[in-house]
Write a protein that binds this DNA or RNA. Sequence first.
DNA 1: AACGCATAAGTAAGAC
DNA 2: GTCTTACTTATGCGTT
Lengths: 85, 85, 85, 85
Amino acid sequence: MSEVGHNSGINSETAARLKQYVERVERLTEEKDGIAEDIRDVYSEAKSAGFNTKIIRKQVARRKMDAQKRIEEDELLELYEGVFA
Amino acid sequence: MSEVGHNSGINSETAARLKQYVERVERLTEEKDGIAEDIRDVYSEAKSAGFNTKIIRKQVARRKMDAQKRIEEDELLELYEGVFA
Amino acid sequence: MSEVGHNSGINSETAARLKQYVERVERLTEEKDGIAEDIRDVYSEAKSAGFNTKIIRKQVARRKMDAQKRIEEDELLELYEGVFA
Amino acid sequence: MSEVGHNSGINSETAARLKQYVERVERLTEEKDGIAEDIRDVYSEAKSAGFNTKIIRKQVARRKMDAQKRIEEDELLELYEGVFA
DNA sequence: AACGCATAAGTAAGAC
DNA sequence: GTCTTACTTATGCGTT
């Protein structure tokens, strides 16, 4: 067998690069999960302070939806610009 | 109507604190979404480099599962210990 | 107004078919919920028999994970095969 | 060591009963997943027939909520009966 | 541009 | 009764 195959049929350089990508994703995912935990902590804290977290979630969702509407409008404006440019 | 009620039936201080929580969540969510985008970028880059992103995803999933499995087994052992403690 | 619109803007045949789908989903959901209840009953029974349900849950999770891991690995292999096909 | 311990420190009869529970849960879970798949199939079919599945889901959710309201009312009635009985 | 997949949010149940 | 954990639903993303 040639050099190819030392790592399940892939040459070792390719395998190494694959590993790089996997590890980068893993590192970023870890960060992301960390932030998700932070968010949970904020809700916990709010709860401890006597707030109903459901309401906060609704509020967040609502504002996000509004933001979405704004984005849609922006895109529409951009579209118009293209037409009149 | 008393001062209470200026903000839908809750006093202004409470409203302010609520706003704080909402904004903290929003800020963290923004960060989180940013990282999610970074992850997508890594996959895009890998794809451009000629890799099959499905393979990378599977590798990531597989490794995550290995880690999870170990945790799962440790917890099971611990649980069994608890039975005989 | 034409015949269309008697049911909020859709013709009655379409409405009837829609209703069919909704009812099929509802019937199946009912079955599903029934089984979910059965599962809960099994855990209750186990608990009454003196078992730590957490252990049973962990066992179930562990076995499921084993199965999933095997599937995951098979898919990965298949994917690799595809690369060299 | 006594007979206890042949199976990770649990006597074999207990282990056997544990296994029974695990398997019952697994069997029921399999059934449940099968039905979940059936539900997905119904949605797929509806989609193929030109329906917007999101709307069907909303419809199903809405009817369920109505049912929930009915249950709440029933419980309230029951409560009253208790008071006046 | 539509489909399936994967993650994420929200909801509900069970443990302490 | 509170709290955490598990499940279910829903949305959004990548792919074909």
